[in-house]
Design a protein around this nucleic acid. Structure first.
Lengths: 109, 109
DNA sequence: TTGACATGCAGGCATTCACCTGCATATATT
DNA sequence: AATATATGCAGGTGAATGCCTGCATGTCAA
């Protein structure tokens, strides 16, 4: 399974996207913290975090008996850059045109 | 299942992403055309296309006995706008700064 | 009209997935 | 040292997924 496929698969589940959202809101949370408010067992959360970690979407640092989780935005940027961007090309072309226009007007006002 | 979830789930499979790629390269292909070169049965392709259609990622138009498939980029843009963009915010802020800078220099050269 | 072609529908099978329970291990606290 | 806290590991179950085969339906072309 390719890396980009792992990322897509990891993002396919709403619980996992919610976990990413939580870490994006406050980075470095422990497993217990991430479990709070969720209606599933700790083991399920662990499993989801395992997939996210495997997709490199989160990284982990042990501090004593606590496992701290950190969100890593790089794979999502890769998804955007290598996959989504190509379908957004028209929009990006328009933006580039705007930049070019502004630069031209700057030189010849 | 929410719409955005359908889209993520549809994108989670590499075969389906490949189908989108094919349609992006050449729009309006029939089922038979989309089957060519793939190593799975027609029925499997039909199933994948069904999911993509359900996620609104492709739309379909019948022409006689042929079913023409068209790629629809809107849901992918939604994914970008409503989900990915928030993790890309630093980069976008930088781009906005560039625009602002250019506009300022234009007014006061 | 008859045969070839494009697709749909129904069901079956193996794998993966999401979730759980039960028990084990390691670290902090008193 | 004894208890409480944070987490891991193993395994089990039901549902979803991906893929297939077999047959039916509708459309074009000779």
């Amino acid at each position: 399974m390719t890396q980009i496929d792992k990322v897509f698969k990891a993002l396919a589940d709403p619980s996992r996207r919610a976990l990413i959202d939580r870490l994006h809101a406050r980075n470095g949370q422990t497993l217990s913290e991430l479990c709070q408010g969720l209606e599933m067992a700790r083991q399920s959360v662990t499993q989801h975090l395992g997939l996210l970690e495997d997709a490199n979407l989160i990284s982990v640092k042990w501090k004593g008996r606590e496992k701290l989780h950190y969100f890593n935005p790089v794979p999502i940027h890769e998804i955007y850059r290598r996959w989504i961007q190509k379908f957004e090309q028209p929009r990006l072309d328009a933006l580039h045109d705007l930049k070019t226009k502004l630069e031209r007007e700057k030189k010849q006002p």
